[in-house]
Structures are given as structure tokens and as C-alpha cells.
């Protein structure tokens, strides 16, 4: 699998645009899901996908063939997400309850047609809670937890993507897991 991507990367490096288009097809959904889970915003997630591929294209010359292609592209995507989370001004979450009116949250303030398809899919209360719990994770735990559970990566793979020692990743998974356990306590 990975050799195919490496071959495509080599072709794209030589200026083969159709090879690059194949890379985009292989990874756009994966990077989109990563970014959507990290940012909880479809538009921002699509922007991250676009930026990721633009960066991949510009840096094809610097891609080290000894490294897995997926590790490389996930690193670029994750870093772009983390940058966005850091730059984000503290904003009001749609899911946060307003202080003055009890039981009224951001969703009731906007017409239902504006809800994104993803929000629609969160039909059950449980789904909504999981979404909120992940969204409320601090950035450094969020990236690790999203890669671990929503991208199914091993601790070693996460350590390669984030360029951090496995022991650090382990500690973050443990803390992240406890954080989510407390958030979801009512449901479990």
C-alpha cells in the first residue's frame, strides 16, 4: 500500500499532475476526518485539507522516502490543525449553554437549515455528547486522541506523526482517556 503512495509521490515530484490527483483521492477523506474531528467545523476542515495538499505538493522534493508517506501527510495535516486551534480566539461554542437563559444553546439560535450535515447525523444524545467531549479536549490531548481512536493509529505511529517520544504519547492518551471518561460519565 505504502509503496503505491511512494511511487505516486515520485511521479508527482517529476511534475505528473494526475499522480498527484491520485494522492489527493487516496487521502482527502482521511485528512478531512482528522481535521473535522480536530476543528469541529466543516469549512475549516476543508481549508485544512486544501492547505495540507498544497504543502505536500510544494514539499514533494523534501519527502524522505524512508518514511511512510501516510506518516508524512498526517504530520502536515495535524500540524495545520494544531496551528488553527492555537490561533483561534476563545469563541462561543454552539454547544455551550448560554448563561442567562437556561436550556438554550447555540443551536436554537440559528435556523435549522444552517446545521451542517454532520450535526444532523448526531441524532442521539450520546452521539452529541461524544462530539462535545472530543471538542472540549485541550489541543495537545485532542490531536493524540483523534489519531488514536478516530484514525486507528498505534502509539508508535502517533509518536512518528507528532515527532514526540512514545512515552509522551502514552501519558497523553491516558490523560485524554480520563478526561473523556469524566465527560461521558453520565452515559456510561
Amino acid at each position: 500500500m505504502d509503496t503505491l503512495e511512494k511511487r505516486l509521490a515520485m511521479l508527482a515530484r517529476k511534475g505528473d499532475t494526475s499522480a498527484f490527483a491520485e494522492i489527493v483521492e487516496l487521502y482527502k477523506d482521511k485528512i478531512f476526518h482528522l481535521a473535522y474531528r480536530m476543528l469541529s467545523n466543516r469549512h475549516e476542515a476543508e481549508d485544512v485539507v486544501q492547505d495540507t495538499f498544497l504543502r505536500v505538493y510544494r514539499n514533494l522534493d523534501r519527502y524522505d522516502e524512508n518514511q511512510k508517506f501516510s506518516t508524512w501527510i498526517y504530520r502536515i495535516g495535524t500540524n495545520l490543525c494544531i496551528d488553527r486551534l492555537r490561533k483561534r480566539k476563545p469563541s462561543y461554542s454552539l454547544d455551550a449553554e448560554m448563561n442567562d437563559q437556561e436550556g438554550v444553546d447555540g443551536y436554537s439560535m440559528i435556523p435549522s437549515d444552517d446545521r451542517t450535515p454532520e450535526t444532523y447525523l448526531l441524532v442521539s444524545e450520546t452521539q452529541r455528547m461524544i462530539h462535545e467531549a472530543i471538542d472540549s479536549l485541550p489541543a495537545k490531548y485532542k490531536s493524540v486522541m483523534v489519531l488514536r481512536y478516530l484514525q486507528d493509529m498505534s502509539l508508535q505511529e502517533i509518536s512518528d506523526v507528532l515527532n514526540m517520544p512514545v512515552t509522551t504519547i502514552k501519558t497523553r492518551v491516558h490523560r485524554g482517556r480520563e478526561f473523556l471518561r469524566k465527560k461521558l460519565e453520565r452515559k456510561i
Binding site: 461524544i130 462530539h131 461521558l184
Partner: peptide
Amino acid sequence: ETEQLLYGFNHRLQ
């Protein structure tokens, strides 16, 4: 349970 919820949440994106 937390792990199960997270894994189950995996494939719900368009």
C-alpha cells in the same frame, strides 16, 4: 465503555 463509544463514533462522517 469510553473506548467503545470512541471507536463507535469512528465512521459517522460523510
